[in-house]
Amino acid sequence: MNQIIKQLKLLFYLIVGVSLLLMAVVEFLLLDISGGLFADDKQFEFVYQSFMILLTLGGIYVVLRLFKFEGIKKRIQEHQLTAYSRWSLIRMLVLEGIAILNIGGYFLFVNSSFVYLWLIIMLSFSFLYPTRERLINETGIDEK
């Protein structure tokens, strides 16, 4: 169990680090060069921004409630730590994917709304930090 938690913590820090690094590269390097590729297309910006708001809020809700779904709960009970580590990684990667889409929106439109959505996702990562207590609470797996 400790080995799984150590691996998940390493992946957690790696995923969050990639997102922070990507945002820093966009903010400090790429925006100076491009200045927003679609900054003038307000209709496309509105559609993309609306889509990202819905995707961000819906994605956070689904990711945080993932272990409450019957199918996933059943798989975790059957395969225990292997399934828990797989689904924990999927949770982190889904949030990371949404974060990258928001960073892309910021790069394309230079709109601070995408930065705020990205910050909300970064705050949501704090609810996914892998610990022994979280593993026991979310899965009901006894300590081994």
Rank of each mutant, 00 (worst) to 15 (best):
S126H: 03
E143L: 12
Q80F: 01
L81I: 02
K9H: 14
I15F: 13
I121Q: 04
L117W: 02
I60M: 12
S34L: 14
L128N: 13
L81P: 04
T131R: 08
G105S: 11
N137Y: 06
E143S: 05
L55D: 00
V16Y: 02
L95M: 15
M52V: 04
W118D: 12
G140W: 04
L31H: 01
S19F: 00
F69Q: 06
F69D: 02
K73L: 01
L14S: 15
K6F: 08
Y61R: 10
L10N: 10
A24M: 13
V94N: 03
I121K: 01
V47S: 07
Y48K: 01
N137F: 05
E96I: 12
V110Q: 10
G59L: 09
I72P: 04
L81R: 12
L57G: 07
I53M: 00
F51A: 14
L31E: 00
G104L: 12
W118T: 14
N2V: 07
V47N: 05
E78S: 14
T82H: 11
L66D: 12
L30H: 08
L8A: 12
R75S: 06
G97V: 00
E27C: 08
M52L: 12
I136E: 09
L8I: 13
D142H: 06
Y48M: 09
R91S: 14
R86F: 12
I98M: 09
